[in-house]
Design a protein around this nucleic acid. Sequence first.
RNA 1: GCGGCCUUAGCUCAAUGGGCAGAGCACCAGGUUGUGGCCCUGGGGGUUAUGGGUUCAAGUCCCAUAGGUCGCCCCA
Length: 426
Amino acid sequence: MRYQSPKGTLDILPEDQPYWRHVEARARHICALYGYGEIETPVFEYTPVFARGIGQGTDIVDKEMYTFEDKGGDSLTLRPEFTAGVVRAYLEHGMHVRPQPVRLYSLGPAFRHERPQAGRYREFHQLNVEAIGEQDPAVDLEIMLLAWHFYDDLGIRGLSFQVNSTGCPACRPAYLADVLVPYLRGYQDRLAPEDQRRLERNPLRVLDSKEAQSQPIIQDAPRIINYLCDECRRHFETLRGYLEWLDRPYTLNHRLVRGLDYYTKTVFEVWAQGIGAQNALCGGGRYDGLAEALGGPPTPGVGVAIGLERIILLLKEQGIEPPPLPGARVFIAYRGDAGKRAGLQLEVELRAAGIATVSAVGDRSLKAQMKQADREGAHFALILGDDEVAAGTVTVREMATGEQAGVARSGILDYLRVRMDAGLSS
RNA sequence: GCGGCCUUAGCUCAAUGGGCAGAGCACCAGGUUGUGGCCCUGGGGGUUAUGGGUUCAAGUCCCAUAGGUCGCCCCA
């Protein structure tokens, strides 16, 4: 294969656009409904924004970033996620002087160098939502409600919400050092080899291991929510109280973790079935330490990253059809050179009047032209031949019914407008 | 980064135990000197992913590479 898009990338062809336009339109609608403003940050940032914002030691930073040096010698990185860039923009533009929290959303591509599989691509698209500058758990709630609302609005069913708290720098280190690690060490030789390695590198990660051998031990492991500091405990209990007050079902998942200091308190994911192993539709949580990691003042924040490819996989899996996009409504067919010229002129007038129009080209038979009009889904075919040019008329054929009429050339615009309005209202 | 499976026309797929690369759809043309959908006829389109190897002979067997796919890891 000579013509090939880069590994892990996809061309989104016109026939797939209804899905994308629909998902993006609903995303903008829901974000506006929740009072979020759109922010567009660059597709690349200086590398330290991600290296410090996401953190050394994460898979993303250590082995998945598209990092390159530009001609001025700066190290740049294609964004592997949105949050670090959005928080960078918050700091750069002094958004702390705006009413807090600052509610921002973005829509666009992100890049990670991973092995592709179903639902995972090297270029992928996200709806990213952030609320920066407020630590009230009601903001955590709002972000979760927004994600909920978005999926519900699209008609997606059968999702499960996974929620946990991973504490903060005040309580997590003590839980790890004094509780979790000693517990796991006690069963070290019964853990899977991979998990024994994790225990040394990043003990929290043992909790979300899928190794069968380790399951009984993980099942009974001491849970971080029983070791939270007062502030984290109050935060999480308040959030859970809100969720129950609003009757939102969720699963308290003790094994849902994020292994970095910047990530604090709330963590959540939404899981789907039927789209393969990459079943996380979105991931979110609090990152009260991130702004400081980027060199700014302490600034709390919470957000969610919603994968669009996985949503579209799910829409297809669940048989949910997006609304069709309108195509050209008028197709102009012709015979002979005079007809062709008359058609080109008519096409200019129709487009100027806002009527989506395409003309036949290539001097094919009228039969072929009519076939093309049909295939392109035109509502009307206009026929211009020697007869029409001589008589000063246009033959109008309504494709759905086959009804055909000669219409005066001078009245064609009005005629089409009336017939199209009739078609729209029926 | 690691493992399993797969790769034949634009698409979906055939091709005995190695023996002339095919069909349907799509595209183009004709059947109607100016009329789409159904039908009929014909046409164009292939270095069988790429590169090696075995063999008189490879789409078919072997090796490597690339891509896809399903998992691992991690997450969107």
